[in-house]
């Protein structure tokens, strides 16, 4: 067990060294290094934005704005926190702005109307393995709708904490650091989020 931890630690340390050297190269203006740096993190950034915003167009905007901010401000990065935390501070700020705007506009449904009827914009991403079982398909559809409603009931900050903890697997201490708050506040957010979802999902779980 200890050996496994040591090995994981060694891999982590190597990775940090690699990231640090890429950052330094990118700060010197080496574009390839910047591109490599982006590629180390961009899949998880895009996944976070997609999961939060449920819109490929918005996820794309978040991606572009976040990495352009990184590009413009990388010279000011002083290694006083991890690059991952710094990057996620930028990404979560942009996503929170988007979520807050939506709360105000009360729009951005996951469905859009077309002349052929209503289409779920996220459906095309999903493997509908239960398609051959109509009962199960119906159940899944209802469950999905309830989940969407439950998530909509969360405040942007609760939604963000839940997303980062549940889907991205980040520790609450890191999440607090990214969101400019304390670990305790992040814990409270997570608690409130799970409670609200339990209430909305009711019999489904």
């Amino acid at each position: 067990m200890i050996m496994a931890q040591d090995a994981a630690g060694a891999v982590g340390a190597r990775m940090n060294l690699q990231v640090d050297s890429l950052i330094r190269a990118a700060q010197r203006g080496e574009q390839d290094a910047f591109e490599q740096l982006v590629r180390m993190y961009d899949q998880s950034v895009l996944r976070l934005a997609m999961n939060l915003l449920q819109s490929p167009e918005d996820a794309r905007d978040v991606y572009q704005e976040a990495f352009l901010r990184v590009f413009r401000n990388l010279h000011a990065f002083r290694f006083d926190c991890s690059f991952h935390t710094w990057l996620y501070r930028i990404v979560t700020n942009i996503c929170l702005d988007q979520l807050r705007k939506r709360k105000v506009r009360k729009e951005e449904s996951a469905v859009v109307e077309t002349s052929d009827g209503i289409i779920d914009r996220m459906e095309s991403f999903e493997e509908d393995a239960a398609e051959s079982d109509p009962e199960r398909t119906m159940w899944n559809r209802q469950l999905r709708q309830r989940i969407e409603n439950a998530l909509k009931d969360l405040t942007p900050r609760e939604r963000m904490v839940f997303e980062l903890r549940h889907y991205q697997g980040l520790r609450l201490r890191n999440i607090g650091e990214m969101l400019g708050t304390t670990e305790e506040a992040a814990k409270n957010c997570l608690f409130r989020a799970t409670q609200k979802m339990r209430v909305v999902l009711g019999d489904f779980v």
């Binding site: 895009l46 996944r47 997609m50 996820a59 996220m122 991403f125 549940h166 999902l201 779980v205």
Partner: peptide, 12 residues
């Protein structure tokens, strides 16, 4: 609840 939410994760 966590299992149900797991089904929702979007593949990019």
């Amino acid at each position: 609840l966590a299992r149900a939410l797991g089904q929702r994760q979007v593949e990019v």
